[in-house]
């Protein structure tokens, strides 16, 4: 690896995975950039997952930033999906976000590693107290969490 490749890899690791700030870079300024990046990512995920963000209200950016601090971006669609699944597994997914997640789980196939793709067959999913069904591309919510 060249010097530049090493420098760049260390910087990205520090920004996205909590690695050490590369020597010689101002720590306070680096921290400001890291926080700004998480805030920007939170805004991008909110556009893809409006109910996930809305369900958290004013705590959204903080919730996302805590979760994303050591998780490099996989794109805002996948980031929001992964976070929603994590929250659902911990019974911490807001009700409106559970409906949003369930509706996507039935419409798309997402294995947590690759880009989501449209489902070809029908699907029924329950997540976070919400239940959704998809038939021939049409989605119905059968149950909303109380």
């Amino acid at each position: 690896m060249s010097g530049l490749a090493d420098q760049q890899a260390a910087l990205v690791a520090a920004l996205t995975s909590g690695g050490a700030v590369p020597a010689g870079i101002d720590g306070a300024r680096f921290e400001a950039a890291r926080v700004a990046l998480l805030r920007k990512r939170a805004g991008e995920v909110a556009r893809q997952w409006p109910m996930l963000a809305a369900g958290h209200g004013t705590r959204w950016k903080l919730t996302f930033a805590e979760w994303a601090a050591t998780r490099p971006s996989q794109g805002s669609l996948r980031d929001g999906w992964d976070l929603a699944r994590d929250l659902a597994a911990r019974d911490a997914l807001p009700a409106v976000a559970a409906v949003e997640l369930a509706e996507r789980e039935v419409a798309w196939h997402y294995n947590g590693r690759n880009a989501p793709s449209s489902r070809r067959g029908p699907a029924l999913r329950a997540t976070g107290g919400a239940v959704a069904v998809q038939l021939s591309g049409r989605v119905w919510t059968l149950r909303r969490p109380s």
């Binding site: 060249s2 010097g3 530049l4 490749a5 420098q7 760049q8 890899a9 910087l11 990205v12 690791a13 920004l15 996205t16 995975s17 950039a33 990046l37 920007k40 990512r41 490099p72 971006s73 996989q74 794109g75």
Partner: peptide, 25 residues
């Protein structure tokens, strides 16, 4: 700028060191 390194996406435009090696890249 660069936006990824070592297979990891930064999610942001990052500054290059102002070196000749970076100019070459």
């Amino acid at each position: 700028a660069f936006v990824r390194a070592g297979g990891v996406e930064a999610g942001h435009l990052l500054p290059l060191p102002r070196t000749r090696e970076a100019v070459d890249a």
